[in-house]
Measured scan of single mutants.
Amino acid sequence: MLSDEDFKAVFGMTRSAFANLPLWKQQNLKKEKGLF
């Protein structure tokens, strides 16, 4: 599990902003970052 700081560094957004994205968009971002 990423820390909040690492999460923001990897995804360029906060966890709450990420959580507001549609599920497909979350999955695409995870795949792009190799976290899926």
Score class of each variant (00 low, 15 high):
Met1Trp: 15
Met1Phe: 14
Met1Asp: 14
Met1Glu: 13
Leu2Cys: 11
Leu2Gln: 06
Leu2Glu: 07
Leu2Trp: 10
Leu2Tyr: 08
Leu2Ser: 06
Ser3Tyr: 05
Ser3Lys: 06
Asp4Arg: 02
Asp4Tyr: 03
Asp4His: 04
Asp4Leu: 03
Glu5Asn: 09
Asp6Gln: 13
Asp6Ala: 13
Asp6Trp: 15
Phe7Tyr: 05
Phe7Glu: 00
Phe7His: 01
Phe7Arg: 00
Phe7Val: 01
Phe7Leu: 01
Phe7Ser: 00
Phe7Thr: 01
Lys8Ala: 11
Lys8Cys: 10
Lys8His: 12
Ala9Ile: 14
Ala9Asp: 11
Ala9Cys: 09
Val10Met: 14
Val10Asn: 05
Val10Pro: 00
Val10Lys: 11
Phe11Trp: 07
Phe11Ile: 04
Phe11Asp: 01
Phe11Gln: 00
Phe11Glu: 01
Phe11Arg: 00
Gly12Phe: 01
Met13Ser: 01
Met13Phe: 06
Met13Val: 06
Thr14Leu: 04
Thr14Asp: 11
Arg15Thr: 04
Arg15Leu: 07
Ser16Gln: 14
Ser16Cys: 00
Ser16Glu: 15
Ala17Tyr: 05
Ala17Pro: 00
Phe18Asp: 01
Phe18Tyr: 06
Phe18Pro: 00
Phe18Arg: 00
Ala19Gly: 10
Ala19Asp: 14
Ala19Leu: 14
Ala19Gln: 12
Asn20Ile: 08
Asn20Gly: 09
Asn20Thr: 11
Leu21Ser: 02
Leu21Gln: 03
Leu21Gly: 00
Pro22Gln: 02
Pro22Arg: 01
Pro22Glu: 05
Leu23Gly: 07
Leu23Asn: 07
Trp24Thr: 06
Lys25Glu: 15
Lys25Asn: 10
Lys25Ala: 13
Lys25Thr: 11
Gln26Pro: 00
Gln26Asp: 00
Gln27Leu: 14
Gln27Glu: 15
Gln27Gly: 06
Gln27Ser: 09
Asn28Ser: 14
Asn28Met: 15
Asn28Thr: 12
Leu29Gly: 02
Leu29Gln: 02
Leu29Asp: 01
Lys30Trp: 15
Lys30Thr: 12
Lys30Tyr: 15
Lys30Pro: 02
Glu32Gly: 07
Glu32Ser: 11
Glu32Tyr: 07
Lys33Cys: 06
Lys33Pro: 04
Lys33Leu: 13
Gly34Trp: 06
Gly34Val: 08
Gly34Thr: 06
Gly34Phe: 08
Leu35Val: 13
Phe36Lys: 09
Phe36Gln: 11
Phe36Val: 12
